[in-house]
Each structure stands twice: as structure tokens, then as C-alpha cells.
Design a protein around this nucleic acid. Structure first.
Length: 567
RNA sequence: CGGGGAGUGGCGCAGCGGCAGCGCACCUGGUUUGGGACCAGGGGGUCGGGGGUUCAAAUCCCCCCUCCCCGACCA
């Protein structure tokens, strides 16, 4: 490709609306351009990178026997009604009406893939099977941001696996999981498969593929000592012995006017002759179960509650509907007797007298003891981990790592097959059974941005060879004025094309500085700099964009030298 | 959806009642070619949209739209 013909115009300055470094660089270097909020066009350079990402995914999926198919983006609303995700995913669905018929623009394709392939997977003899698709998906993101990192229209690769039983599903999951690792190895970024929360997609075991990055919207808990890694929404902390503070006094009620928060209560008590602290208070959070039942979650007052995925946080209307609940003064004592299920965090001790709400406006209880003054129905991990918490697997400490989610694999089990009539096959004994499914997604259009976030310098992008839009750029300085340069650059370019190298020749009539700056900005993995100074002595310079190292190479040897680098 | 900020040529910005400007980019001619080079000439704008105030509005007022940031949300 001749750069004079390439549809691209680099920018010296980034658009003012680009915040993330990946966004700035991809726009400046001419890879992408915004069409609307969260909607981006891929220019020729950007598409080349995208195609390379896709090629890696195809190769690794194909290698484990997954078969590519193509599904519609336009889904009839009925298939979304069958799983009820028309309601549960309402906030992200883009809906369109076409001549009186209702459609959904697919944000994910579980319904569509089942509807499509179930006739082909009618018997246990047809299983296991894995199919995948690489295509555009849509989400009505409330707030698109960070360029390609969170968009309304995006390209995903999603694989879907179908097995006859749980064991088969687990085996398939492991196979695809390994393929994911192979994919991310080739993409060339540091990544961590972390245990994660299943979110609205449902299912059981699942892993997020996280790439540590300063811009990341997620955090995962990580233990350097043993490698434990879990999304903050799924992470738990280990036990740490809390020293008992000695004798626990009797339960008593104290007046605490205008103290609806932990901080207010602690401040009030401490200034009125009591000794109180957030750690020795219990934060009481009301959550609602799937059947509308009330649950009380108790965690130490200095910690953030992590609501179990089976429950949802209570809303104002839920408090209004239950006369036993006085927001700001809720506590465990007596609530179980009025039908509230009591949960306590694992760290709540039976040897500590806690301060809790008295279920009466303006009053709290002191020295409330688990087992003595109230009984817990469930003991669970209810706090969000923080840096410094003990690792649940070893003696180490947890740290929180900011990161971007690049992929997500799920063991769905029967989550969808149980809801969708056609998601069944005939077993060996002739009876019908639902598929054990898995699904596995990679944000294809997010990958270039993720890589750009972690691989750039002050001069621009730095692509790993596998993703570089070209393998090498021939930067011809004085191409329009120096015949020897022109001739040398052309010969190198032609010989590389001959060897099927993906090569770009900067033949533009521009100042040397501009060409060198552009080459760095665009970030092609290798540069061959052809200048008057070198060619007079029979040399060119080969620069590795990653290391910045430049090597003087004889013109006659440069083809061979480069093929070695690319091998 | 709540809070904050911004819309002036492709990009970055100035102008803030009185002729719409600057840098980059673009076009023509010339010089130049190892780190965004120089000279001369040139093209491109309903100042986001609508309404109002005024002799006069990019500039003041009202409504709307779009975009960005923080939060809520996040397959």
C-alpha cells in the first residue's frame, strides 16, 4: 500500500472530546472517527487492525473445532419474550418497529443462536457442538465513553457451546477457556482470567478476561502470593482473627436522635459518654428476594455491602410497604420475628457486642450479640473486598487492580435451555433433555482500544506485530527529491511485496520530520527508514517501534533482515 | 436518569453588542527533505437549531438539540 493513496489524515491535536489515551491516539492516527456518541467508523487503518483481531479469534476458535456462522442483528421480539429478557434487559435493548412488527437489535445472541441451530442439534449424537459468530451488536448504553471502550454499536465474537450433560459442558468450557488464553497470548497484552459475577446473562461458573489499565471501569481482587483473581463483584475475603474486646455487656437501648447513618450514630454516641466505632457497628441493608420477601444484610459498619446476586437492593417503595422498617434505624433484633430473613457477613463475631438500629426511629441498641440477641438465617460473604483484605485462598493480602473487561466466558448450564422450548435434544433413551450451554464473548472492537491503552508512548501507538495494520512501513525521506532514495525505497517495497510482507510505503511529498512523526504515531511494528544520508553509503535503518532501537542494515540485506524479524 | 461543562471552517482555539478571526489541515506555484520545514497566493463558516430583545446579535434572554466529564447503570 502506498501511503499517498491510503485514506488517512493524521491530526496533530486530538479532538477535545477524547479523554482516554486510546481514544485520542486512535483518532489522531486516523484509525477511527466518531459518527455519534458511542458510534464509531473504522477507517482503513482501523479496519486492518480489526481484521487482524478477528483472524486470531477465528484461527483459535477453529482450532478447537468451533464453527463460524452468522446470525441476524435484527431479532423478532418473540424470542426475547420467551426468555423474558425483553423485560430483564429492557434498559439496554434497542427496539425497532418495522411495519407494525417489533424487533430487537441484538445485544447478545443466546436466543437467536438457539433458534437457529436447535434443529441441527436434535439428538445426543449431534452433541457436543460449538458455534461462533463475529458481528455487530447493539446496546443502549446509558453513557458511552472512552472512545471504543464503551460504545452503543460494537463488534463481538461470541461462541456458544451445546452439551448433553454438565460434565460435557465443563469439558467444553475448559477447551474454549484455553482457546481464550491462546487468543489473548497472541494479542500480546497482560491479562487475568478472573472469577466473576454472572450478571444479567445468568449461569454459574464464569470468568472475565481482564486487562489491567488505568482507564479501566472494573476492579478485580488479586493475590500476588497465590494468583487468586476475582472480580470485585465476586471476590471474597479470607478469615482474619479479630481479637475479642473482652467482656460483652448486656443489651440496652439508647436514644440516638437524628442519627440515620453509621457515621452519625458513632459521632453521637462518642460525644455522649459511649465508646463506639464503625467496625463495631452493624450496617443493616434491606434487600428483596425474587418472591418479594424481605432480607436483612448485616456487615461491619466500615464496610460496603455486596448484595448476593439472588437479591436486589430495596427501593423506597419497599420501605413504604413494610411498617417494621424505619430507614436509618434498622437492626436485626426482632426483625426475624416479623418475617425478615437475616443474613450476616462471615466476619460478624459472636464475641463482639455491636451497635445496631433498634427498629425505632431515634434509637439504637448497644452490645447486640449474634446468637444471643438475634439469630442469623444465613452466614455469607456480604462485604465488598478492599485492598489489604486477607486472601481467601492463602496467607497473602488482596490488592485491587483497575482493569478493562476484554472477554467473558460463562457456563450457562440450563439457564436458557430451560426457558426456550426448542432448546432440547433427544437422549439415548429417547427422552427429551435441555442443552447444557456455555457462551464465550470477546469485545472485538474493544480490543484495539485496550491494546492502545496499554501499548503506547509519547509519540503514538505501538502495535504488537500480530495486530499491526502493516507489518512494516518504509519511510522514504526525500522520496520526491532524491532519485537514489526513491529508487531504493521502491526496490525494498517491491521485494517485500514479493515476499507477501504486509508493507506500507510512505511515498508522500512531505518533510522528513512529518513522515517520521506519522510513522511513530501510527505505530506500525517495524519502520525501514530510507534517507539520503544512509543510501549514499548503501544503508537503511530498521527501527523496532516497540523498543525504539534502530539498526543500520545494508540495502542488499534488508529484505532478509526483515523476514527474520517477522518470522 | 441526577450533577457539572462545552457547542464558532475537517481538528485545536480566540472573539462575548458594531466588517467572523488565528494555528494546523486543504488548494496553486516555488524552495526544501533525518524528527510535525519555509516563502507567496488561495478556497472553505446559516457562529448547533428555533424564538425573542435591539438601529444592530456569534455576543444579551427563553426553549430545544448535540457532545464531554462525574455519578447511577454496565451482556
Amino acid at each position: 500500500m502506498l501511503m499517498s493513496k491510503l485514506v488517512v489524515k493524521t491530526l496533530r491535536e486530538a479532538p477535545a472530546d477524547a479523554e482516554a489515551i486510546s481514544h485520542q491516539l486512535l483518532v489522531r492516527a486516523g484509525y477511527i472517527r466518531r459518527l455519534a456518541s458511542g458510534v464509531y467508523s473504522f477507517l482503513p487503518l482501523g479496519l486492518r487492525v480489526l481484521r487482524k483481531v478477528e483472524a486470531i479469534v477465528r484461527e483459535e476458535f477453529d482450532a478447537v473445532g468451533a464453527q463460524e456462522l452468522f446470525l441476524p442483528a435484527l431479532h423478532p421480539v418473540e424470542i426475547w419474550q420467551e426468555t423474558n429478557r425483553i423485560n430483564t434487559m429492557d434498559d439496554v435493548l434497542m427496539k425497532v418497529e418495522v411495519r407494525g412488527a417489533d424487533f430487537v437489535l441484538g445485544p447478545t445472541h443466546e436466543e437467536a443462536v438457539i433458534a437457529t441451530v436447535s434443529p441441527d442439534l436434535a439428538s445426543y449424537r449431534d452433541l457436543p457442538a460449538t458455534v461462533y459468530q463475529i458481528q455487530t451488536k447493539f446496546r443502549a448504553e446509558a453513557r458511552p465513553r472512552f472512545g471504543l471502550l464503551r460504545t452503543r454499536e460494537f463488534i463481538m465474537a461470541d461462541a456458544y457451546s451445546f452439551d448433553a450433560d454438565k460434565e460435557g459442558m465443563r469439558t467444553t468450557y475448559k477447551t474454549i477457556f484455553d482457546a481464550y488464553c491462546a487468543i489473548f497470548d497472541r494479542i500480546g497484552v497482560d491479562y487475568f482470567p478472573v472469577e466473576a459475577d454472572a450478571g444479567s446473562i445468568g449461569g454459574d461458573v464464569n470468568h472475565e478476561f481482564m486487562v489491567p489499565a488505568a482507564i479501566g471501569e472494573d476492579h478485580f481482587a488479586y493475590c500476588k502470593a497465590c494468583g487468586y483473581a476475582a472480580n470485585i463483584e465476586a471476590a471474597v475475603r479470607g478469615e482474619r482473627r479479630t481479637e475479642s474486646s473482652g467482656a460483652v455487656e448486656v443489651l440496652r437501648k439508647v436514644e440516638t436522635p437524628n442519627s440515620p447513618t453509621i457515621k452519625a450514630v458513632v459521632d453521637f454516641l462518642n460525644s455522649h459518654g459511649h465508646v463506639a466505632s464503625a467496625e463495631n457497628s452493624l450496617k443493616s441493608m434491606i434487600a428483596i428476594g425474587p418472591n418479594g420477601a424481605y432480607h436483612l444484610l448485616l456487615v461491619p459498619g466500615d464496610r460496603k455491602v455486596r448484595i448476593p446476586s439472588s437479591l436486589r437492593a430495596a427501593e423506597a417503595s419497599d420501605f413504604d410497604a413494610n411498617p417494621n422498617l424505619h430507614l436509618g434505624y434498622i437492626g436485626p433484633v426482632g426483625l426475624r420475628e416479623v418475617g425478615v430473613t437475616i443474613w450476616v457477613d462471615r466476619s460478624v463475631s459472636e464475641e463482639i457486642g455491636y451497635c445496631t438500629g433498634a427498629n425505632e426511629v431515634g434509637y439504637h441498641l448497644l452490645d447486640v450479640v449474634l446468637g444471643r440477641d438475634f439469630i442469623a438465617d444465613h452466614v455469607a460473604d456480604l462485604v465488598e473486598v478492599v485492598g489489604g483484605d486477607p486472601c481467601p485462598r492463602c496467607e497473602g493480602d488482596i490488592e485491587l487492580v483497575r482493569s478493562v473487561e476484554a472477554g467473558h466466558t460463562f457456563q450457562l448450564g440450563l439457564t436458557y435451555s430451560n426457558k426456550i422450548k426448542s432448546a432440547r435434544f433427544s437422549g439415548e433413551d429417547g427422552s427429551e433433555a435441555p442443552y447444557f450451554m456455555g457462551c464465550y464473548g470477546i469485545g472485538i472492537s474493544r480490543i484495539p482500544a485496550v491494546v492502545a491503552e496499554v501499548s503506547h508512548d509519547a509519540n503514538g501507538l505501538i502495535w504488537p506485530l500480530e495486530l499491526s495494520p502493516f507489518e512494516v512501513v518504509v519511510v522514504a525521506l526525500g522520496y520526491s527529491t532524491n532519485d537514489l532514495v526513491t529508487d531504493t525505497a521502491d526496490r525494498i517495497y517491491d521485494s517485500l511485496l514479493e515476499e507477501d510482507v504486509d508493507v506500507l510505503l510512505d511515498d508522500r511529498n512531505l518533510a522528513a520530520g512529518v513522515k517520521l512523526k506519522d510513522a511513530d504515531l501510527i505505530g506500525v511494528s517495524y519502520q525501514i527508514v530510507v534517507g539520503a544520508r544512509g543510501v549514499a553509503e548503501g544503508n537503511v535503518e530498521v527501527k523496532d517501534r516497540q523498543s525504539g532501537e534502530a539498526t543500520v542494515v545494508a540495502i542488499s540485506k534488508v529484505g532478509e533482515y526483515l523476514l527474520d524479524l517477522l518470522a
